[in-house]
Amino acid sequence: MTSLYTLTDLSKGYTRGKESITIFEELTMTIPEGDFMAIMGPSGSGKTTLLNLLGGIDRPTSGSVECQGVRVDKLSEGKLAKWRSQNVGFIFQFYNLMPTLTAAQNVELPLLLTGLSGKQRKERVATALDIVGLADRKGHRPRQLSGGQQQRVAIARAIVADPKVLLCDEPTGDLDRKSADEILETLQLLNTDLGKTIVMVTHDPSAAKYARRELHLDKGRFVEQVQEPAQ
């Protein structure tokens, strides 16, 4: 398998005044294309921070993040924004949908950054909503949807521009078991059928079972645990 991400000697820390905290130091690893990786670890261990570095919304203290030959950590703000819009889909714990927009409009949002025509955008939105099983809710606003449904709209938004990688930060953290399983099945489907590379942060061991492998982040170190994907 070719690698999608290569992280080399990646360090992240914060300095506040004289005090400095290190979250992780000199992490080196690769994420192959088509991977579905679950990252687990105690609160404060740097899971979100790692995801932000992969997604190019945060910068490392030192080391490099390379994605398909692009040095993400070196891109300017403007280039980074463009790179994100073309390569990464984000899924958050609290969905982060625009409350004033309908489901379809929320999904369409990333497409405003493309040169697609209105008609093409509409088709893409319909397909994305279809994949997450919400075709019949396209006119609903986030407030009119359940948590699970909102998260599925968020997934549709994350995949609509056809990015290579999906970065999910506790995507089921706010959901009941049943909705969580539906979301995880959808993610698994995106991985197996559409070939999306997925990096998912979770606290839930049963959620992690849906992934191809688990990584435990603790005190700035990774402990890997390969597994068969749950069916």
Binding site: I57, E77, K82, N96, P99, L109, P110, L113
Partner: peptide, 15 residues
């Protein structure tokens, strides 16, 4: 602020 951050995450440039 949060919505603006989300827009930026999606790739909307600051300008």
């Amino acid at each position: 602020t949060r919505e603006i951050a989300v827009m930026k995450t999606l790739g909307f440039p600051a300008p």
